[in-house]
Amino acid sequence: MLNCKQFTDLASEHIDHEHTGWKRVEVRLHLIICRHCRRFNRHLDRSRQTGATIAQQVWRSDEGTSDLIFSRIIAAAKNKNDANP
């Protein structure tokens, strides 16, 4: 029978529906009987969702960076064309 500490180790895999067979049954049974682990699971899932939303918003480049990278691409392409007319 799974205990709480073991569940916390498996919680990400549970969120990702990675468990099959008896492991999945064990995890689900544990969640039925343990409200603390249900809360842990909920918190981990919401942390993941909130973190992903914020990452999507902040892991972007500003306009200046985009312009700079684009100008380098164009310059490199032009140099290549000049070298191989």
Binding site: K5, T8, C37, R39, Q49
Partner: peptide, 27 residues
């Protein structure tokens, strides 16, 4: 495996410091 700190569990692996309620509880 990454771990939740061991002091949160008793010798049988059951919570002694269970997760606290979150007031701000949705994404």
């Amino acid at each position: 495996r990454p771990e939740v700190a061991a002091e949160n569990f008793d010798g049988n692996g059951h919570w002694v410091n269970p997760p606290a309620h979150w007031d701000i509880n949705t994404p």
